[in-house]
Design a protein around this nucleic acid. Structure first.
Lengths: 224, 224
DNA sequence: GCAAAAATATTAGTAATACTAATATTTTGT
DNA sequence: ACAAAATATTAGTATTACTAATATTTTTGC
């Protein structure tokens, strides 16, 4: 069971901690609903305020702009996947088994987390698939990196890279392969849903099992 | 040597063919400069008009909005990589050698093309690396797919998938692997430049040779 | 229970963005 | 040289992305 403070979002991403107040938690919760519904481009603080019965100005006291809010959600997701991996690989010694569990959590990090009731993880997963690339493909990325906003992603990737190195200490690209597995999980789902000629996998509803098979095939070929 | 009509951009992406007029070609040329300089979020038609000595309204007669223009550039790139692959694999029989050439063109599609003088391929490549995901991660993707705007990407991927199948007719994921190689090429360069802890490769200036090595390592592991 | 402080809401604004319409001027093709 | 096409100009609108000032409500410490 996660408690909110375990999530460990970096200072500075928000102007004040949204987890500490009702309004803050409402912003997180409703922004996930609204971004998923209208897409990040059409998402505005005015619309968000309206649909949660609040005021645009109030939201600006929590986040500088919608980009910061998106990055906050993406960082939340990275932390959450990290937590799931820690939880689900606890007491497991075999690094092969560990990487299998990691792959399953990369693809299917959608089991509801009962202690963070205001985050709909399934919708957040949809946002990650469709919008997360926008969180770092900006001119601000270098500055935001110096502010530590990508530490969660780096920590997640390093954790996976360490397991890869455990499996094969001579594998030359553990971090690249870890990043690639994570990004591929999201990309292949997006392509299967929208541009299916770009993949050989099929997804139906929330059944992403073919993506798990694909990633495990990669694991087998790359690491034996 | 390419002639412009070979590029074959889909109808409907632009309101009128920018290749047929000086203004149209100026839009392509200057938008590449400006998007690369300020990033897609900060890019506007007003700024573009100003920096090319034209008028905002005139630009709207060529493209509905900046998203269409970005997609046009991305489609251009897909076509151009396809062309390079055809050109460079002509008369080569060995599918292994073909895939090596494909990988080199995925990574390093930056050799200047003398017949399309108004397109700076190096800058276009930077845009692809930083902005191309935004061209399809939108709520419009399904509609734009029905309009045929992604045919170039599908054709490129199918071409590569066919080579993969030639190498190993039993390989179960030729399209996914082709897509993954292409996306990985761009992603790993971006990460090496901005979030280097996510990769094991290094890029210096326009030398992306370590990315070529990485992709060839994948090829070797996945296809033998 | 009350005052101070913190949080939230309201109102009112600005500059920039993302367009569209109407008309005038310039360029081009024959 | 003339008609047609392309481009430019001017002038607008609605929305976005904010900020400032002030008012109201809620929380908390004593």
């Amino acid at each position: 069971m996660v408690i909110i403070s375990d999530i460990g979002l970096p200072q500075g991403l928000s102007l004040r901690d949204p987890l500490q107040t009702k309004l803050g938690r409402d912003i997180i919760s409703n922004s996930i609903d609204l971004i998923e519904e209208v897409g990040f481009e059409q998402f505005t603080f005015k619309k968000l305020a309206k649909c949660m019965g609040s005021n645009e100005t109030s939201l600006y006291r929590y986040f500088e702009n919608k980009h910061s809010l998106l990055l906050y959600l993406v960082v939340w997701y990275w932390n959450w996947v990290s937590y799931l991996i820690d939880y689900n690989t606890k007491n497991i010694e075999d690094p092969h088994r560990k990487l299998d569990i990691i792959i399953e959590n990369f693809v299917d990090a959608t089991k509801e987390n009962p202690s963070v009731h205001f985050v709909n993880e399934t919708k957040l997963h949809h946002i990650i698939i469709s919008e997360s690339a926008k969180a770092y493909h900006t001119k601000k990325v270098d500055y935001e990196n110096t502010e530590g906003f990508f530490m969660s992603y780096k920590a997640l990737i390093q954790k996976v890279a360490d397991v890869i190195t455990e499996i094969n200490p001579r594998f030359p690209y553990p971090n690249s392969f870890a990043t690639n597995l994570f990004e591929m999980a999201n990309n292949q789902i997006f392509f299967a849903q929208h541009l299916p000629r770009l993949t050989n996998i099929k997804v139906q509803g929330e059944d992403f099992s073919e993506v798990v098979d694909l990633l495990k095939f990669y694991k087998h070929k790359m690491l034996g």
